[in-house]
């Protein structure tokens, strides 16, 4: 009974990790760009939501209406203005530039907000729970996050495989020069992809900050969770990312049940096991 509960709670937490991972998977999938600052953008989104909800007197959830478009625009401009310049056969420039951006964001947040622990509020939904058949209590909010993750991935899957924009994304990912021959402006498409990645990052950041506390230095470990979910799931597969996130969440929940100090370590161990046993992940699609 206890274990079933742990696995369910861990699996639901995996929904949040999948949301962390979507942005990373998108930017890698389309422009082979690994954004080291990804975790810091998650945290940045939470801070932006904090300002917006305080400024407008609205709940953190309602602030998404502002935060998502804002982060989309930031992502578009970041890719167009800076990251497009780093793309090429050399992996160092994108890596080191996003690394620099990561340090800049962290320290700007530290200067602006101090090292205090923050939290976003979404009202009663934070504490409500429902009882599943079998008597297991599940928080409404974690359930909502999980459902949102499923909806987001289904939506992405639809856009990617059923629309003209999705075809352009995949074509630019396969062969950017030939995609240009089709009239696809790769700089614009890459910027759109980063915008979309950042929109998901914004959603993930706000949900994360409602669920747990955050501070300016919370980013890097979220990058690592996102990364672990992507690698466990397999590069280039959105549904794989969800499974990867769930495996990570369940591993952490099991670890936490054994001893609080084992929570995060257990997640890392799950990642290591997959890396050693099946380095291409459970559901690989693209090769790089």
């Amino acid at each position: 009974m206890g274990w079933v509960n742990i696995i369910i709670q861990g699996g639901l937490l995996g929904g949040l990790y999948a949301l962390f991972a979507i942005g990373l998977a998108l930017s890698f999938g389309i422009m082979r760009l690994v954004n080291i600052a990804h975790g810091d953008f998650i945290v940045l989104s939470a801070f932006v939501a904090m300002i917006v909800s305080a400024g407008l007197g609205i709940s953190a959830i309602a602030s998404l209406a502002v935060v998502i478009p804002a982060m989309f625009a930031l992502g578009y401009l970041l890719q167009r203005g800076i990251l497009n310049l780093t793309l090429g056969s050399d992996i160092l420039p994108p890596l080191l530039v996003t690394f620099g951006i990561s340090v800049i964001i962290q320290n700007l947040l530290l200067e602006g907000f101090g090292a205090d622990i923050q939290r976003l509020h979404a009202g009663a939904i934070e504490t409500e729970s429902v009882i599943l058949p079998g008597g297991i209590a599940v928080g409404v909010f974690p359930l909502l996050v999980f459902v949102l993750a499923v909806v987001c991935i289904a939506g992405l899957q639809f856009v990617f495989y059923r629309t003209g924009l999705g075809r352009a994304f995949r074509a630019a990912s396969d062969d950017p020069d030939t995609a240009e021959l089709m009239g696809v402006d790769k700089r614009h498409i890459y910027a759109l992809a980063m915008g979309v990645a950042m929109a998901f990052t914004a959603l993930a950041g706000v949900l994360f900050a409602i669920r747990t506390t955050f501070e300016p230095s919370s980013g890097p470990i979220r990058l690592i969770y996102a990364f672990e979910a992507v690698i466990i799931g397999g590069l280039g597969s959105f549904w794989g990312t969800l499974v990867g996130g769930m495996i990570l969440g369940i591993a952490q929940a099991i670890g936490a049940a054994l001893s609080p100090t084992w929570q995060i370590l257990a997640g890392h161990i799950a990642f290591l096991v997959v890396l050693i046993v099946k380095p291409s992940g459970l559901f690989p699609r693209t090769r790089d």
Partner: peptide, 30 residues
């Protein structure tokens, strides 16, 4: 290139360069 296509010049590149992750029809559509 992406601007020139819109003006009415197209190219069949050497080695065909179809998009591997797109189906035949998707290649035509793009």
């Amino acid at each position: 290139a992406h601007e020139i296509v819109g003006m009415g010049i197209a190219m069949v590149p050497e080695g065909r360069r179809l998009f591997p992750s797109l189906s035949v029809e998707e290649n035509l559509k793009i």
